[in-house]
Amino acid sequence: MKELRHVGSKKRKKEENRRNMALPATVSRLFCLTGRIFTSPASRHRQTANMPTERRYISTSPRNDLRFKLDERTAHSSLDLFKKDTGIIYRMLGLDPSHVEDNPERFKDWAVVFGDEKISSGRHYWEVTVKKSQEFRVGVAEALMSRDDCVGTNNSSWVFGYAQRKWFTMTSNKIVPVTLVGKPERIGILLDYEAGLLGLVDVEQPRLIHTIRAEFKASLCPAFGLWDGELLTHSGLEEPKGLN
């Protein structure tokens, strides 16, 4: 009888060991099905210990020497293009809107103009001479953005602006102050489409002064708003080193 009980006890222990060995595999499959990764506490400890204490963003997007001109078809009637369509001048009175060719791409209520190139990938850099203006916005906008809106007032445009001697970022009509910039004669714009980054660049240093993070989902165009003086664009430039 004792021998039978001993055999039964060994059999039960063997069955328990088999079930315990199967448990991790079952749990692992469950976490995979729910989109989570299962690791043991010891494994998690090893992973944490091996992680670097500091991460630095490094872009893997291909760099492109973007070349563009300003698209007269989009320009508001108060904006004059000059220097082979690379610069814009603000005219307070402007042209009579009825004297400007009517088309659905033109901004009719806001002094805005787009660049003539569409961007859907890659890393791009251009500069803008801003010394002759005291009120402007520069950045990017979706090519199909509503022409009833001004750049910065909706969720399809991202800009850096300057007004009343202060810099700011603007998107979805939300304004965020940008400090420690001053009023340079020329600024740079860095766009990394895949990384969702738009940067304001100090061209003298060079360095990134401020960045806007976004998830770009549609083709973008360089975008400009102007309510005083003039702006001059410079494209086809090589990106300065060290902006990562």
Rank of each mutant, 00 (worst) to 15 (best):
I189F: 04
V159Q: 05
W126I: 03
C32D: 10
K13V: 10
A42I: 09
L93N: 13
Y125D: 00
T26V: 13
Y57E: 00
L93P: 02
S120P: 04
H6F: 07
L70R: 00
V203W: 03
N103Y: 03
G139S: 00
D116V: 03
G122C: 02
S157T: 05
R106L: 06
R5F: 09
N154A: 08
L30E: 13
V27T: 06
K217Q: 13
N50K: 15
N154M: 04
F216C: 02
S146K: 12
E72F: 08
S9M: 10
I58Y: 07
T179W: 00
W110K: 14
H99F: 12
R18I: 12
S156T: 15
L66D: 09
K174T: 11
A195M: 06
G8E: 13
K108V: 11
A49N: 12
K13T: 08
R46G: 09
K217I: 13
N103A: 02
S40C: 07
K69L: 10
L4Y: 11
F216P: 07
W158L: 05
P222H: 01
S61Y: 01
K14A: 10
D109E: 12
E215I: 14
K166Q: 15
G242F: 02
L208I: 15
R55E: 08
D71M: 01
S28W: 03
T171R: 03
A163Q: 10
L70W: 04
V7C: 02
P97I: 02
D109R: 13
P206G: 02
L237Y: 04
S40D: 08
K183A: 06
K2Y: 10
K241C: 01
A22H: 04
E185M: 05
V7I: 14
S40G: 09
S98F: 07
A223F: 12
K183I: 06
S78N: 15
G115Y: 08
S28C: 06
P52M: 03
F38Q: 08
S235V: 06
F224C: 00
G229N: 02
E54S: 11
A75Q: 01
F224N: 01
A141T: 03
T74H: 05
E105A: 14
G115D: 07
G94H: 02
G225R: 15
A163W: 07
S120T: 13
Q134A: 09
T74N: 07
G242V: 00
Y162W: 08
A214V: 04
T211S: 12
E16A: 11
M1E: 11
S133V: 04
S77R: 09
G139M: 01
I187Q: 07
S156K: 15
T53A: 11
E72Y: 10
L144G: 11
L66V: 02
V27P: 03
K131Q: 15
H76Y: 11
A195W: 13
M1S: 09
N155C: 13
F136Q: 01
V201K: 03
R29G: 04
G225M: 10
R12I: 01
A143S: 15
W227F: 13
G196E: 00
M21L: 10
C150S: 15
E194K: 11
S43E: 15
T211R: 09
Q164L: 08
G161C: 01
